[in-house]
Design a protein around this nucleic acid. Structure first.
Length: 485
RNA sequence: GCGGUCAUAGUAUAGCCUGGUUAGUAUUCGGGGUUUCCAACCCUGUGACGCGGGUUCGAAUCCCGCUGACCGCACCA
């Protein structure tokens, strides 16, 4: 399915839509989830908790979205999350100062350097705008963090550009009070904020977006000493090496040094098993090892988990081995002690991060699940039953003859346990089609026979097949069919 | 941020060039009827010119600005 097909579904069926859309000054990069989108997102996160957080005995926190200046001073975001930019006086085009200098003069100036240095070099080497040969204005820093003013004096703080900083900052307390033991995963879901220059494509590039992040704290001396590695050693993952994607088991990946150690391979394996269960087509996925130039400023080893969609390869998860970059910086700036005991050894833990983009995952799940059933003239959203916004539709075949009342009765009995959509009106076929489009895997229909023998028909979304089932067996059936795997 | 294309009901569109009707159509949606297991049919109802300014007796239509969407470039720690 194309991007436009997914967009249309999202708008018509309440998955997502533009924020503040009734006002003309609404800015780009902000989208809202509607009822169907929220329901899908909640279930996606429940699956994430099951497959990663609980499975690996991680613990979860929920931190502030606004954090102090010191946090981002220590994390490096104040200096490194900003691009030095120069603007052409003539054609107004904006360029990265460091890049344009390298292109013309081969002089490498780190992007965190003082602005004077860029200006000086541009003048010395007589660098002009590549588009129109015009002169540049003075270099400026464009920081992608949103600054906010706190209290009446407007003291400076920032909306977090990634959720993980609260995990690092909270680590000493959490490790102590939760009786932590290495390796320890700390997880968090929530919003992050980045002032993107050009947000695009609805959920794919947002200024305000959801992340589900996991930071695993570990003893760097024990990266190949992981008992639980056996759990995923045979799990297949697809890894891009040079231009070729190879499918191999996690064990093969470590043995061949495609992945540097068991520790990293274990978490990539968990991630692959998780995404398999979201219904994303894993044949269209890859882990891509990032080169030095692509990696974030804090990363030693980095793999992106990417999935192929109608708009190209999409990065869904960034997996970064951040080493002790973060704990070290926060320890130095705050004077707090971050080293912990691992057996008899005192270590400053290293961190491996799985930083998941929830919004992009939502889009990908929708795109990979949506199909057109031409034979039956319908669009079907073949979501996994446990992820569907609606588990089951409850329909009366006709409203009269007491069927509506009987239908209401069944609805009341199951509505608290499942996401149920009750519908009495219109042609039955039309109601089935509507349910197909929001991905409801089952529909039960109350007909005249129901009044005689207390059975209903149950219809499967994907096959359109129907069978009769006793009302008394309904709960057991639904419970089994909509359960998380 | 630069360049190109574009902006009319929930969705998809006609009308714009050549200014003047009650802004048309399809579908969706609400109510009613008929049928009774897969978007049928009949009746009925709700629903739109992105925002701001200008020209004009009169603007969805012409002009300017803004905002947004799409596509390329750049950006994506």
């Amino acid at each position: 399915m194309t991007y436009d097909d997914v967009m249309k579904l999202a708008l018509e069926r309440g998955f997502y839509f533009p924020s503040s859309e009734i006002y003309a000054d609404a800015q780009a990069g902000f989208w809202e989830y509607g009822p169907s989108g929220v329901s899908l997102k909640n279930k996606f996160l429940e699956l994430w908790r099951r497959e990663l957080v609980r499975r690996d005995k991680m613990i979860e926190i929920d931190g502030s979205q606004i954090m102090s200046k010191s946090v981002f001073d220590a994390s490096g975001h104040l200096a490194s999350f900003a691009d030095p930019i120069v603007r052409c006086k003539k054609c107004k085009a904006t360029h990265r100062a460091d890049k344009i200098i390298v292109e013309v003069s081969q002089i490498e100036i780190p992007e965190s350097a003082d602005l004077d240095e860029f200006d000086k070099t541009i003048v010395e080497k007589n660098i002009k705008c590549p588009k129109c040969n015009g002169d540049f204005e003075n270099a400026k820093k464009f920081n992608m963090m949103f600054e906010v003013g706190i209290g009446p004096e407007g003291e400076s703080a920032y909306l977090r550009p990634e959720t993980c900083q609260s995990i690092f900052v909270d680590f000493p307390r959490i490790f102590k009070t939760m009786r932590g033991k290495l390796p320890l995963g700390i997880a968090q879901t929530g919003k992050s904020f980045r002032n993107e220059i050009a947000p695009r494509q609805s959920l794919l590039r947002l200024r305000e977006f959801y992340q589900a992040e996991i930071e695993v704290f570990c003893n760097p001396a024990k990266l190949n000493d992981l008992g639980k590695f056996s759990e995923i050693k045979d799990t297949k993952i697809r890894i891009q090496i040079d231009d070729e994607i190879k499918s191999m088991t996690c064990k093969e990946a470590v043995d061949s040094q495609t992945i540097p150690n068991e520790f990293v391979a274990y978490y990539l394996g968990l991630l692959a098993e998780f995404y398999e269960k979201t219904g994303i087509n894993m044949e269209k996925s890859r882990f891509r090892k990032l080169g030095d130039k692509e990696k974030a400023f804090y990363a030693e080893v980095a793999f992106d988990f990417e999935v192929e969609t109608a708009v190209g390869w999409l990065e869904l998860v960034a997996c970064n081995y951040r080493a002790d970059y973060d704990l070290n910086s926060h320890a130095t700036k705050s004077k707090e002690k971050f080293a912990v005991m691992d057996g008899d050894e005192k270590v400053l833990p290293h961190v491996f991060e799985l930083s998941m983009g929830i919004d992009r995952s939502m889009y990908t799940i929708l795109e990979h699940s949506l199909r057109e059933d031409k034979e039956n003239e319908r669009m079907v959203l073949s979501l996994k039953p446990y992820l569907s916004p609606i588990h089951v539709g409850v329909l009366s075949l006709v409203k009269k003859d007491g069927l509506a009342e009987k239908t209401d009765e069944i609805y009341l009995n199951i509505k608290r346990k499942y996401d149920v959509f009750l519908d009495h009106s219109g042609a039955i076929g039309r109601r089935y089609r509507r349910l197909d489009e929001v991905g409801a895997p089952y529909a039960i229909t109350i007909d005249h026979q129901t009044l005689d023998d207390d059975t209903v028909t149950i219809r499967m979304r994907d096959s359109m097949e129907q069978s009769r089932i006793k009302i008394s067996e309904l709960d057991e059936k639904l419970s089994k069919e909509t359960a998380f795997p």
